[in-house]
């Protein structure tokens, strides 16, 4: 379970990116984080694994208070949080396998990783996961030779290689076409369910968020302005998050279901562990 309390981030430039955000994400819950550009979505998930150092507030993963950890302990804690990036962020000149194995860097020593002598179990797991996402035939391709959807699948596998408890997903579909976007989102959700992972997904596409996430949190100017099940997302809510606009088309798309056979994940119990 991830608990965020009063998280605040002020950049050296003076911009207040996060303003006292509190959230709880229980195990196994997939949460979508929506909001306009600059609302602090990226900063929020980067504060969780401290790629960005928060100014104030606390982040707890299970019993570990991440915001208090020293360097070494922080690296150990990062292993428990897999991160999936916008534009994939693969190391482009390394092969698919090397990129996947880089998910194990927190577990192996420097020289072992330098000579690429990873434990056999890691390599087996890598093969298994690559097969799971349908990329086992591309093991030795260089990452920059892959298509967008393939790259993002490698990114997903890299995150899962860490054997995480939590997935931090930053705009996973930002540069993908609509069909691939759905496939990638479905893959992330399925894998999170399989392993009972909590996930925070930053996403621009409101319709996709409604389609795949059970819980939606809306961020505006660094504050949470909405927290509820996907079904509760109304035009009024979207207006408080994004500002005035005609939202009917955006929402209807979901209410109509979807033409191309995507089944919305069961909105069974949208467990809302309300933070406030």
């Amino acid at each position: 379970m991830l608990v965020i309390e009063g998280l605040t981030k002020r950049y050296p430039t003076g911009d207040l990116a996060l303003d006292g955000v509190s959230l709880t994400v229980p195990k196994g819950q997939v949460m979508a984080l929506i909001g306009p550009s600059g609302a602090g979505k990226s900063t929020l998930i980067r504060c969780v694994n401290r790629l960005v150092e928060p100014t104030a507030g606390a982040v707890r993963l299970g019993a570990t208070e991440i915001t208090r950890l020293g360097d070494r302990a922080l690296r150990r804690a990062r292993r428990r949080m897999g991160m999936i990036f916008q534009e994939y962020a693969l190391v482009e000149r390394l092969t698919v396998m090397e990129n996947v194995l880089s998910g194990r860097l927190g577990y192996v020593g420097f020289w072992r990783s330098w000579f690429r002598r990873f434990p056999l179990a890691d390599i087996e797991e890598a093969f298994r996961l690559l097969a799971r996402v349908g990329l086992d035939h591309m093991v030795d391709k260089r990452a920059d030779a892959l298509s967008g959807g393939q790259r993002q699948r490698v990114g997903i596998v890299r995150a899962l290689m860490q054997d995480p408890e939590l997935l931090l997903v930053d705009e996973p579909t930002a540069s993908l076409d609509p069909k691939t976007s759905r496939q990638i989102m479905r893959l992330i959700i399925e894998l999170a369910k399989e392993r009972n992972l909590a996930a925070i997904i930053n996403i621009h596409d409101v319709a996709l968020a409604q389609l795949f996430a059970e819980r939606i949190v809306g961020l505006h100017a660094g504050r949470i302005v909405f927290d509820g099940p996907a079904a509760a997302l109304t035009p009024e809510v979207l207006t408080t998050i994004y500002g005035e606009e005609d939202w009917s088309a955006t929402i209807r798309k979901v209410e109509d279901g979807d033409g191309d056979g995507d089944e919305p994940p069961s909105v069974e119990a949208a467990r809302i562990a309300a933070a406030d």
């Binding site: 396998m97 090397e98 056999l120 390599i123």
Partner: peptide, 16 residues
């Protein structure tokens, strides 16, 4: 081809 398949069927990956 850095992926080598042993007789037992386990696959091993090496950089080179």
């Amino acid at each position: 081809m850095p992926v080598v398949t042993h007789e037992q069927g386990t696959r091993v990956w090496m950089r080179r």
